[in-house]
């Protein structure tokens, strides 16, 4: 029962996290910041705006992106297979990339390109995390992983690698070249408007849920450790976001692939032989 409620309200919880994050970020910069419910005000406003449809596929792919992400979150909450979840999440990114390529705007194309390159950088790390969980818990099932003890100690290097993936997925500096708000005007989202942009906006909230739910898997059955991880990493990410500048796409791939893959590989080899 509680699972169904969680799944139904996942976008709303994500919206709260996003709103809270904007407040936290503002307080870190010593200003007041928007109200907590700001994301929902934005949402209601977007319903009322005129919407331009560039072409039907573009809008449909945008909506598909949102729906697949919701399914991904539902799968995690229900405790399905971790590999399914990761590949389904890749599918949702692919929908977004296709949407970006389906219009003529150059910014949209650049955004799609970068999204693709970023997927290239973080996807191997996500898969290695799944393999790491398998080696520790003997199963890919999220329900089984949640029943075991916290695996953060034995997967510590993979955890560090995951810390590098999170800013990419949440579009935070230094790894926010995929969205790059003033530089390529949001990349793939540029041609969405009105109610169709809203789906992308809510997909962003679902992305928060996805990323933090994966993070909490590292805590296993220890709820308090999970919540502690969530709060700690949330503050850390915002601090880094406020303190760093955006790096180039080329450097993003180099850093994430070289450092992340090395960390992940070391961890996996260590698990296999030690």
């Amino acid at each position: 029962m509680i699972e169904i409620l969680l799944i139904l309200f996942a976008p709303i919880i994500g919206g709260f996290i996003y709103g809270f994050e904007r407040v936290v970020r503002a307080r870190m910069q010593n200003r007041q910041g928007p109200p907590l419910l700001q994301p929902f005000y934005d949402m209601f406003k977007l319903i009322d705006k005129q919407a331009f449809i560039v072409n039907p596929y573009h809008t449909i792919l945008g909506i598909m992106h949102f729906i697949t992400l919701w399914v991904v979150v539902a799968f995690i909450i229900m405790g399905q297979n971790l590999l399914y979840v990761i590949f389904l999440h890749l599918l949702s990114s692919i929908f977004l990339i296709l949407a970006g390529f389906s219009v003529k705007s150059i910014y949209s194309h650049i955004g799609s390109n970068r999204e693709l390159l970023a997927a290239l950088a973080y996807e191997p790390i996500l898969i290695m995390i799944a393999v790491g969980f398998f080696m520790v818990n003997g199963s890919f099932d999220i329900a089984v992983i949640r029943e075991h003890d916290a695996s953060i100690a034995s997967l510590f290097l993979l955890f560090l690698a995951y810390l590098m993936v999170m800013p990419i997925k949440l579009k935070k500096s230094p790894f926010d070249a995929t969205e790059a708000h003033q530089e390529i005007v949001g990349g793939v989202e540029i041609e969405f408007s009105g109610i169709f942009f809203e789906f992308l906006y809510m997909a962003k909230w679902l992305e928060y849920i996805f990323v933090y739910l994966l993070l909490m898997l590292f805590a296993g059955d220890n709820i308090f450790l999970g919540i502690g991880l969530f709060i700690g990493v949330f503050l850390l990410l915002n601090l880094i976001d406020n303190a760093t500048a955006r790096i180039k796409m080329k450097h993003l791939i180099k850093i994430v692939l070289s450092l992340g893959l090395t960390l992940g590989m070391c961890n996996l080899i260590g698990l296999a032989y030690v």
Partner: peptide, 21 residues
């Protein structure tokens, strides 16, 4: 910027005409 903080009214500087008011 922080001193006058227009964002407290919910203002975002989008830079994208299709999403601005």
């Amino acid at each position: 910027a922080p001193k006058y903080d227009l964002e407290r009214f919910g203002v975002i500087n989008t830079g994208n005409p299709k999403q601005s008011d």
